[in-house]
Amino acid sequence: MVKLNKIYTRTGDKGQTGLGDGTRVAKHDLRVAAYGTVDETNAAIGLTQCHAKGDMKLLLTRVQNDLFDVGADLCTPDQYAPPFPPLRVTSSQVEFLEKRIDEFNADLESLRSFILPGGTQLSAHLHMARTIARRAERLISKLVEGAPSHLETLRYMNRLSDLLFVSARKANSNGSQDVLWVPGANR
């Protein structure tokens, strides 16, 4: 369990940070960028929760907890052999998201066009979190090229962005308040 008594340590004052195995890397390292963007996703979901209620709020809380697992997974390099197994994202976490996506999507109107992010406040915030999750996914996909143990993490972030998309549609009265893209409308 993590115990933080002091928030600043001064160990990062020269542009380096520590990974889960103790290795020091630049703060702009791909691995740090990936888990930093997962942290941004988590913060965006925290903001989104301010507009959510009931089951949606509970779902977002569960996702936030999982995103800390994602961060823990990403901050631990493949080569690390600790005395205990590193925390890795599991297929059951991905499957949970898939089940929620299927449940939400069953109630949605079929899409006839791409959707403009927006509608209700909750939907707009879910779309913002989705775009940040997609950015994290792009960074993780680059990281996975040399770190195959993070494949479930990549799958998780891919499903999470899908879940946030269908959740945004659900927050728009099951899609009836979606604002559809009209190609070339302003030519």
Rank of each mutant, 00 (worst) to 15 (best):
L122F: 14
S141E: 15
R100H: 10
N186W: 10
D162E: 12
R88N: 05
D73R: 07
A44G: 12
A106P: 07
T120W: 11
G15L: 02
Q16L: 08
T76I: 04
M1Q: 14
A129E: 09
D178N: 12
E137V: 09
Q49C: 15
T11K: 15
R24E: 07
Q93P: 02
Q64W: 08
N172C: 03
R112S: 11
Q177I: 03
S123A: 13
N105S: 15
F84G: 08
G36Q: 01
Q16T: 05
K14G: 07
F165K: 09
T48H: 05
I7E: 07
V94T: 00
D39N: 09
V70M: 07
T17D: 08
R62I: 05
L97T: 04
L30Y: 05
S110L: 05
K3R: 13
F165C: 04
A185Q: 02
G15V: 01
V182F: 06
K170T: 13
L164P: 10
D55Q: 03
G12V: 01
P83V: 00
G20Y: 03
F68N: 03
R138E: 12
L180G: 08
I7L: 11
P117Q: 08
R62A: 04
Q177G: 11
L59M: 09
N186D: 11
G20Q: 06
V89C: 00
T153C: 03
T131W: 08
T90K: 12
A106C: 10
P183D: 10
T23E: 09
L47V: 14
Y8C: 06
L4Q: 06
L74F: 04
D162C: 08
P83K: 14
P148K: 03
M1S: 05
R169T: 12
N5A: 05
E145G: 00
S141G: 13
H150Y: 02
A43Q: 13
E145L: 08
L143H: 06
R159F: 03
R130D: 01
D107F: 09
D102I: 03
T61V: 00
C50N: 15
R138T: 15
L164R: 10
M128Y: 14
D39A: 12
N174T: 00
S113Y: 02
K3T: 14
G12C: 01
K14C: 01
